[in-house]
Amino acid sequence: MIFLDLFLAFLLIGLVAFGGGYAVLPLLERMIVLDRGWIAMERFVDMIAISQITPGPIAINGATFIGYQLISREWGVALGILGAATSTIGVVFGPALLIFVVSRFYTRFKDSPVVKAVFRVLRPALVGLIMASVASVASSAVFDVPGVLIVLLALLALWRLKWHPLLVIGACALLGLVVYM
């Protein structure tokens, strides 16, 4: 049954994850961490970090990570891999099916004023959702003054110095080593 739950949860996540990239995080946090308690908030934040240092879309990385963590905890590595496959197939299933449907009337879809109207409101709403993720990740990751300083330094590096995210993550890992060891 847990495999079916896993598949259905990620099927729904895939079908409502508009906007790509980080916009999937509030959905994952709500459905996987808060409602189902399948992984702890701290592991969820680790998952985001690992997604940034491995290739691939964050939704795929997240599905694989969560599917494996949930199943392998009780049933070991082999079934854990099956769990990872279940959630990963679940998250790509809906979008892939939609592409099949939309590709038939693709020219009408791409210039559709309805799609444009939806995204005029959906885009800023997704900004709000992403910022909600920032707030909950921050409340589980920032405990002290050095923490706040490291976040500000990382923002400065991304914004003003235009550092690559991998470089920012590496620098923060080193700062973590210096501050928290």
Binding site: V45, V127, A138, A141, A154, L158, I169, C172
Partner: peptide, 21 residues
Amino acid sequence: AMFKGIRLSVVALIFFAGAKL
């Protein structure tokens, strides 16, 4: 300790992505 630092970078990375959008 490294992951404590990395989690902090995640806060900045997501905020930056939202701000860019």
